[in-house]
C-alpha cells in the first residue's frame, strides 16, 4: 500500500470524459477512470476495444480529442505538463522497443544521463541495480539482438525503472513472447506490483490478473463496460459482453 504524503495528489491518475478519434473512427468514448496511488489495474477486452489507446493517452503518446487527464495532480495540456507527466510515468511496449544499436547498459543509462543529467557512474550504478532486479545483470554489455524475447522485455522494464517513475504502464507486455518466456516477464511485473508501484497493465493473461490486480477494467468498442475486483469480475461478470469475452478467452 502506498504511503500518502501531504503534497501528493489524492489519486495517481484521473481520467474524465476522455474521447479519441482516429479519423472517423471513435477509439475512446467518454472514458472515466480513477487510479489510486499503489493501485494495480488490469485492462482487458477484445482487440480494437481501445485498451492500448487508453494507456497511450495517459503519457500522451496519443493526443486525446476531449476530456481531461490528470496524473499525480498535473493536468495534461501544454508541452511542459506533458514533460512533467512523462517523468512520472514509465511504459513497457508489446514490441519491447529496445534501442538495437546500443548495449543493454547504454539502453538503460541513456535516459538518466540525457534527460536527468546523471553522471555516467551514477547512471551505470542505477542501471545495474535494476538489471539485478529483473535478474539479468550478466547481459549488460550485449546488444539487444543477442537476447531472447523474455530477456529483452525484462531489459525494457528495467529501462523504464531507471527513470524511477511512480506509475508504470504495460501495453500487452507478453503478447509478442514465446509461451515459455511469458512467466519470467510476468514474475518481474508481479514483483513490481507487490512493491507498491501504481500500474495499469493491458493484458490477456488472466492468471496474472487474478494474482496481481486490485481491479479489473473491461473495455469494448472504446468504452469501459465493467470494472470490479478480480473476484467479482471472474466469478460473476455483470454484463453479457463481459461474460462472452471471458468465455472465449478462458475456454482453452
Amino acid at each position: 500500500m502506498p504511503e500518502p504524503t501531504a503534497q501528493r495528489a489524492t489519486n495517481a491518475i484521473e481520467i474524465k470524459g476522455l474521447n479519441k478519434w482516429f479519423g472517423p473512427f471513435q477509439a475512446l468514448k467518454d472514458v472515466d477512470l480513477t487510479v489510486a496511488h499503489g493501485e494495480r489495474i488490469v485492462v482487458c477486452g477484445p482487440s480494437g476495444s481501445g485498451k492500448s489507446t487508453l494507456i497511450r493517452c495517459v503519457n500522451s503518446l496519443e493526443a486525446h480529442d476531449s476530456g481531461t487527464i490528470t496524473v499525480d495532480g498535473t493536468r495534461m495540456g501544454n508541452a511542459a505538463s506533458i514533460e512533467a507527466i512523462r517523468a512520472e510515468v514509465g511504459m513497457v511496449f508489446q514490441q519491447f522497443n529496445l534501442f538495437p544499436h546500443l548495449t543493454i547498459l547504454e539502453n538503460l543509462t541513456l535516459g538518466p544521463m540525457k534527460a536527468r543529467g546523471l553522471s555516467r557512474a551514477e547512471a551505470e550504478a542505477r542501471a545495474m541495480k535494476y538489471l539485478e532486479r529483473v535478474r539479468i545483470p550478466e547481459q549488460a554489455d550485449k546488444k539487444s539482438g543477442a537476447l531472447s524475447g523474455g530477456q529483452q522485455q525484462r531489459v525494457a522494464i528495467a529501462r523504464s525503472l531507471c527513470m524511477e517513475p511512480r506509475i508504470m504502464l504495460f501495453d500487452e507486455p507478453t503478447s509478442a513472447l514465446d509461451p515459455e518466456m511469458i512467466a519470467e516477464v510476468l514474475d518481474v511485473i508481479v514483483d513490481l506490483a507487490t512493491s507498491g508501484m501504481t500500474m495499469i497493465v493491458v493484458t490477456h493473461e488472466m492468471g496474472f490478473a487474478r494474482r496481481a490486480a486490485d481491479r479489473m477494467v473491461f473495455m469494448d468498442h472504446g468504452a469501459i463496460v465493467e470494472t470490479g475486483t478480480p473476484q467479482e469480475f471472474f466469478e460473476a461478470p455483470k454484463t453479457e459482453r463481459c461474460r462472452t469475452f471471458l468465455n472465449q478467452i478462458l475456454r482453452h
Partner: peptide, 27 residues
C-alpha cells in the same frame, strides 16, 4: 526506423533533438 523507437525515447524523457541524435540517426 520503427515508430516504437521514437515512442520509447519519449517515455524515457528524451527531447526531440536527443531522440534524433542518440536513437534515430545512428540507426
Amino acid at each position: 526506423i520503427a515508430r516504437g523507437q521514437t515512442e520509447a525515447a519519449k517515455t524515457i524523457g528524451l527531447t526531440y533533438s536527443q531522440t534524433m541524435r542518440y536513437v534515430i540517426l545512428p540507426q
